[in-house]
Design a protein around this nucleic acid. Structure first.
Lengths: 233, 233
DNA sequence: GCGACTTTGTGCGTTCGTTCACAATGGGGT
DNA sequence: ACCCCATTGTGAACGAACGCACAAAGTCGC
């Protein structure tokens, strides 16, 4: 029932096999490599790159080995070539069209974020439900009303939607973008979105991060470890 | 060689034992519970709560079991009581003082974010290196110059620093806040921060999230799976 | 060419996390 | 007072991820 890859050596065996944990680290490696490239470095060892990326060198090598055998023993990895391979694996050699829905402070910050344009992501639309914002120009784009959401998604070929609306609007907006054909969503609203099978959602949540930090901070300070159990009344 | 907790039944066995993966989900449960509470729900089963939080119910039960035995068999969990217990475990029953360094678009968005004040986090300072921003009032606070960073951290008792500066400034700023005594950092700049042992850093990186989405999107579309290996020249 | 040296790629044991499946247990109805 | 039912809490099996340690494989100097 599982038509795994048949290990035909002439083809990359990456057909299915890159672990999620590895995928999450590839962008970090990529950024480190780009930094090295700008500084004119041509070759880097797993040890050096791992240090720059903040990971263990064995992990780095294993991660890279999932993409293929791109290193040279005794030497290391050729920076430029590795940048290309990781970019290709991540799909950054093609252009991704992004729409940002919700143009509050956060939406503006995202619209102006340099990391977009720089690496294969093109913001094709800024949308908001608030009529007093519609028409405003931000980062070279005119804010459109959310009425036009479906039109813009289809006309511009948007494949990634960034939801930066208030919590209450997020699920309805999500339903609409999904209905319009978007299959990848980046959600900044503090809600759990429910989506049909086949749609990817990633969530960025400031307040969750803070709470995790608070937990550890409390631990350092002595925390609630050794207290009597308070019996449920 | 493993001095595990000695299972003294009179004490909570959470002395050390909450898995990181569980900690990361507690805030999600907490938010779901608060939603239920507002809607007047008094009791909830693991099945319902798990659905609201978007996880498997067995996982939810195991997570909660790490905090103690707060459910009632045949009934479920008392919403209000569980809210309290999770809040306490996360350290939200005390106030955490936060400083935001870098008051660009992102810093402004963070300063105005409701999730702060609402749950035990108090923003005690907005700092920026740009003199033309210093003095501006945002969300009830006056922007201070980063010269005063150490003073503010110490006078206000800041324990969590949020770094929303450009990439180049992040590491120096981080070094300063750590030197001033901060042991928890939330980093929005696209760099890997290096910190001494004992300091926690969490990273929020928009462009990494987008790249992960792009990877999966590419996979859905047929991706680079079955291409010939291009031999390294 | 050859040998010493460096660094990759990976097999393996370990740890961490998830899921299943069910015994334990409290509540409520009769 | 007892039994039935719903739901928790958890043992155990499974799977994913990590990191060590080393053989394989290439480079560089001579």
């Amino acid at each position: 029932m599982n038509p795994r890859q048949t290990n035909a050596k002439a083809f990359k065996d990456s057909s299915k096999g890159i672990p999620e944990a590895t995928v999450a680290r590839l962008p970090v490696y990529l950024r480190a490599l780009q930094g090295l490239k700008e500084r004119g470095v041509e070759t880097v060892s797993s040890e050096e790159l791992a240090a720059a990326a903040g990971v263990n060198s064995a992990k780095l090598r294993k991660d890279l080995s999932h993409l293929g055998s791109y290193g040279t023993r005794g030497v290391g990895y050729e920076v430029e070539y590795l940048v290309y391979q990781i970019s290709r694996e991540l799909g950054l050699t093609q252009d991704w069209v992004v729409a940002i829905i919700g143009v509050g402070n956060l939406g503006r910050a995202l619209a102006g974020y340099g990391g977009f344009a720089s690496r294969g992501f093109r913001v094709a639309g800024l949308l908001d439900a608030d009529a007093s914002i519609v028409g405003e120009r931000i980062a070279g784009l005119t804010v459109e009303h959310t009425d036009k959401l479906e039109t813009i998604i289809k006309d511009q070929g948007v494949s990634i939607a960034v939801i930066a609306t208030p919590a209450a609007a997020a699920q309805p907006v999500c339903d609409r973008v999904v209905a319009a054909g978007v299959t990848s969503v980046l959600n900044f609203a503090p809600v759990v979105l429910s989506v049909p099978e086949g749609v990817d959602v990633r969530k960025v949540d400031l307040s969750i991060e803070l709470q995790i930090l608070a937990f550890h901070e409390q631990r350092k300070a002595g925390g609630p470890h050794e207290e009597y159990i308070e019996v449920h009344p």
